[in-house]
Design a protein around this nucleic acid. Sequence first.
DNA 1: GGTGCGACTGGGACCGGTCACAGTCTGCGC
DNA 2: GCGCAGACTGTGACCGGTCCCAGTCGCACC
Lengths: 338, 338
Amino acid sequence: MEDTTIARRRPTIRDVAAAAGVSRGTVSRVINGGHWVSPDARTAVEEAIRRTGYTANHAARSLATGRAGSLAFLLTEPQHLLFADPNFSLLLRGAAEALSQRSMTLVLLVAGTPEERANVAHFVSAGHVDGVLLISSHEADPLLDSLLDAGVPTVSCGLPLGHQGDLAAVAVDEEGSARVMTRHLLDRGHRRIAMIAGPDDTPGGRYRLVGFREELGEAFEPELVEHGDYSRESGTLAMTRLLERNRDIDAVFAASDMMAAGAVVALRRAGLRVPEDVAVAGFDDSGLAAAHEPPLTTMRQPWDRISAEMVTLLLEVIEGAPRRSITLPTELVVRDSA
Amino acid sequence: MEDTTIARRRPTIRDVAAAAGVSRGTVSRVINGGHWVSPDARTAVEEAIRRTGYTANHAARSLATGRAGSLAFLLTEPQHLLFADPNFSLLLRGAAEALSQRSMTLVLLVAGTPEERANVAHFVSAGHVDGVLLISSHEADPLLDSLLDAGVPTVSCGLPLGHQGDLAAVAVDEEGSARVMTRHLLDRGHRRIAMIAGPDDTPGGRYRLVGFREELGEAFEPELVEHGDYSRESGTLAMTRLLERNRDIDAVFAASDMMAAGAVVALRRAGLRVPEDVAVAGFDDSGLAAAHEPPLTTMRQPWDRISAEMVTLLLEVIEGAPRRSITLPTELVVRDSA
DNA sequence: GGTGCGACTGGGACCGGTCACAGTCTGCGC
DNA sequence: GCGCAGACTGTGACCGGTCCCAGTCGCACC
């Protein structure tokens, strides 16, 4: 007996109810926790679900409950910086896994071009997702304003500059992390330490520099600071400029591993060895760091925990719980470069 | 005046109908192409949609039409290889953009652990997405079997080994690409060319090796072939072994940029210069290739076109059109390494 | 024996769309 | 004057769930 003729209609809750000899209401109760259901009815329903191969229809449930059952993973980097970053993948994967455990799904939204941004704002405001995991970093993003206006539950990855307190966030202790790394370089005996900071309109750009300056105290020299945009090329450029200003630099702390790798290129071009002549430290502990020649000393960001906590916080906000933010610790990873 | 008391109900198609002074049916017709609608009615409806800020409810539409309005981006790599690969991001982004143009969404599914694989199979078979963009490469994946059994429209990225002809695929000309690169190395005067191939149960592992062998013809030497798993470390290991067997190698063709970078590490450890002593060629033209020291000669894969074509093909299959596969060309990118 | 209560069950209304079908209205040919 | 085709419109049924309310049942208690 084949029943492959025409794909038979998928079983509905009515089929299950009929098979179990109970009403739709009872089946629904069993599916949703099973309170106020007699043991007999429950086992009958469970058996019927098994037999029929029933699976709830997302769309129907979503229509009835008013919940979408999905969260958006929203990328707003105009440049593809984050996309090139291996860390991004970890974040995405972690979020997908955290959601699948809760039988929810992750919808990927890309808001690069102005047109895409408008579409995304519309889509999200229309309630097609229950909330937004915001993967952005730049200050004053109008898209964030429109999300907040529309009252869309949102949690930010990293401190949302200009909107602190307006939305939940999961961040690492940027300032403290930078102090730890700076202290490490000082402890190793370095005295002329330069920094390649990130853009000032990103939390990592701003606060890692603050930590660096604080830890150096009196020893801080403004001329030993350059800014990059987290890319490798910008690291090379920044290092080149630093060397033009001061050839005595004996260590450099870059706000990303990519920029650290770029700095190494510039140092080598200048005939300097890493770490013998100049120590180089990065940030992120991306895959790149361990594979680099020499392996990079860096600050590890707990990407898996970040994504998991973002999902937790966002679901709390959706439930109506008071907004909460979390700061996670980083970890100094000492390798050969510093 | 705050209206934050209770978020007002989102307008429905009934509200629009009332505002425009027409029936729900007419509004629906306008939304879906506007055939058999008088010009007056159409403009009235369009105006009403604008005024009310109406957006269609995905869940309701999906329930009524039986279409989910979303596609799955399914990752099945047990290891996180693809995740570490910058190309993966391009593919993902391309797919998301192609879909957003069609007002559909991309749902990310990760099928790493056995439990996840079971969940994913269940989820997809239950019809929660209209089709699957399969990002996998290994032969004999039971998950693929269950997708095919369930009749889920699927398109594969790369030739689906063991299932060719069973589902649509978008692939590059692996064999031809490998021949082009091999010819390039020969034309540069190299005579003892080694290859670091990918795993034999992946299309890139198998057919790039075939192309390499074909192009070398008589000159092919089996002892100059090693296999890696596309990772950097495996490239280093493979190159090390090749050098142990034969110190006269004057060029090496790796089946991925990552492995090429790994090979460079091994070559340097052996005291050999790239490209002076040994030319190194990669595959993919990932971001890594251009940034590498020296910049890598490689074969560029058209990732943006691959994702766009995958979406096109999958939508065709969903529409019931006959299954179709596409082979896209690659491009030789000559840089410093070979 | 009636009352009250808690556990459990059934079924109608509803979520917000689409779709098929039954109109209506207009103009044209005979 | 009538029939009829074609353009357009309105309406009820339906998609597959959830929710809530009205019941039923059994049992303890007065």
